[in-house]
Computed example of a mutant assay.
Amino acid sequence: MSVAANNVHHVIPLDQRPDFKFSSDNLISLCGNCHDKMHDRINNKLTKLGVEWVKRMNRIK
């Protein structure tokens, strides 16, 4: 079963790097449930999974 990826996630959050807003290297398409796994919606911080993606992106650059 496939789920539509209808959310764009900024791997490095915009409040940290607003200059990466439209950088394709910083964007991933996710479904709503997967996007929610990247953020703690209560405190607006990245989850452990979200931080892992930031580390992954920093290795690429």
Rank of each mutant, 00 (worst) to 15 (best):
S2Q: 11
D25K: 09
N7R: 12
K55C: 10
R41K: 08
G50A: 05
N26A: 10
H9Y: 10
S23D: 15
K21V: 13
R17H: 09
K21H: 09
L14V: 12
G32N: 07
K55E: 15
V8A: 12
E52Y: 07
W53N: 02
A4R: 08
V3Y: 04
L14P: 00
L46W: 01
H39V: 11
I12G: 00
I12N: 02
D19R: 01
V51Q: 09
N7A: 09
P18K: 03
D40T: 00
V11M: 06
D19F: 01
H35W: 02
C31W: 02
D36Y: 01
S2E: 12
K45R: 13
H35F: 02
D25H: 07
P18L: 06
D36C: 11
N43V: 10
C31R: 01
R59V: 12
N26K: 03
T47R: 01
S2D: 12
H39A: 01
I28D: 02
H10L: 09
H35S: 13
S24H: 12
L46D: 05
L46F: 01
F20C: 08
H9F: 07
D36T: 10
S29I: 08
D15S: 11
G32S: 11
W53I: 03
M1T: 10
K37G: 04
Q16R: 07
N26F: 06
K45S: 11
L30Y: 02
M1R: 07
K21R: 09
V51G: 00
M57A: 15
S23E: 14
D36M: 11
C31Q: 01
V54D: 02
W53T: 04
H9S: 05
N6W: 04
H35I: 07
D40R: 00
V3W: 01
N26V: 06
Q16Y: 06
N43F: 06
N43G: 02
H39E: 13
K21E: 15
L46T: 10
N26D: 13
F22C: 08
T47M: 01
G50C: 04
N6P: 00
